[in-house]
């Protein structure tokens, strides 16, 4: 049901019945290694190219989500997923082996919430009974496309972020009233914001206004206060973006505690890992939400969270043509059903 200007309320509360999360070696050394279902020992993952390894990540996460949810792939109606690589081929190739009717999504690093919002909407209106949704990224494949070759010895500024090697997939189903399961209750679709930043090594700073705009739109549409949520978590703003977004939200008159406002890009790695400003990538919000945060919710740490995945919709060509960075953020509210 449409609520306000850009939000949906899911009255039937679609349930996230299981999740699957896979990661790479760098994530294995991170803070949240225990929340990954599968951690690969090297970046090649037994394949002969990083793009193929990227596909393996997505396939692994999907397979794990299906297995944990005791669901056969033929019982899943739709697969909604995406990544950052040209024409989202790693996801499409994993959809080929999954053999599930497929919507390819691109929302850069906001793909995870784009998929979850759309999936919830479809389930809410009985468009499907079971949907698989997720997002993934592979550090080397993404760096290769957006920046320099992986072995190139360029110096990254302290504003740069580290692309996560990881995939997060959720199995969304009709709510059957089962207890202790996370459900999606509402979603807010963001609009593209561009405040004229051009530095591709400072994406957090570029994405902060989009996150702030979507969060305030969500509060306004649903007529609630940030205190409604135990946690508001952004996708991959990093240190700079998070501080900036917090200040923007305060300027808009929203009261958010510092502890209540977290960022997936700052949760995933340890402080001593050389990630400059934090983590990023489509796999960042997907793996942290479907791994760590869902586990925390099941353990009762959080009851209601708002996940705001942010995406910088740039391409290497727009950067070279001096185009500014357009950014987007989608928010999905997840609550524990008791």
């Amino acid at each position: 049901m449409l609520k306000g200007k850009q939000s949906w309320i899911f009255n039937n509360r679609p349930a996230i019945t299981s999740t699957g999360v896979s990661g790479g070696p760098f994530e294995a050394n991170g803070m949240l290694a225990d929340d990954f279902d599968l951690l690969h020992e090297d970046l090649w993952m037994g394949e002969d190219s990083y793009e193929k390894a990227h596909r393996v990540l997505m396939e692994d996460a999907s397979r794990i989500a299906l297995r944990k949810g005791n669901t056969e792939k033929k019982d899943v109606q739709f697969f909604l997923a995406g990544d950052l690589i040209n024409q989202i081929t790693p996801t499409s190739l994993s959809a080929r082996s999954l053999e599930i009717p497929y919507f390819g999504l691109f929302g850069a690093c906001s793909t995870s919430m784009e998929g979850l919002a759309l999936g919830s909407f479809i389930i809410n209106y009985q468009g499907a009974n079971t949907i698989l949704t997720g997002a993934s990224s592979h550090n080397s494949a993404v760096e290769k496309q957006f920046r320099y070759p992986t072995e190139y010895g360029g110096q990254k500024p302290p504003t740069a972020q580290w692309t996560v090697t990881g995939a997060g997939v959720a199995l969304l189903e009709q709510n059957t009233g089962q207890a202790n399961v996370p459900v999606t209750t509402s979603a807010t679709i963001g609009k593209v914001m561009d405040l004229g930043l051009t530095d591709p090594f400072n994406m957090g700073g570029a994405m902060a206004p989009a996150a702030a705009d979507t969060i305030s739109a969500h509060m306004k549409d649903l007529d609630i206060d940030p205190s409604y949520y135990d946690l508001i978590v952004t996708g991959d703003l990093g240190k700079i973006g998070q501080e900036t977004a917090l200040e923007l939200l305060k300027d808009k008159g929203l009261k958010i505690d510092r502890d209540q406002f977290q960022d997936c890009g700052l949760l995933i790695y340890k402080k001593d890992q050389p990630v400059q400003s934090g983590a990023s990538g489509a796999g960042c919000s997907a793996s942290v939400l479907y791994g760590h945060l869902i586990n925390q919710m099941k353990q009762g740490v959080y009851k209601r969270i708002l996940v705001v995945a942010t995406g910088a919709l740039l391409s290497p060509i727009t950067v070279q043509q001096n185009e500014t960075i357009p950014c987007i953020a989608h928010a999905v509210s997840i609550e524990m059903q008791v």
Binding site: P158, T159, L197, G205, K239, I240, T244, E247, L248
Partner: peptide, 8 residues
């Protein structure tokens, strides 16, 4: 505003 938070 963003400049203020940016790491130099």
């Amino acid at each position: 505003l963003e400049q203020k938070h940016e790491t130099k």
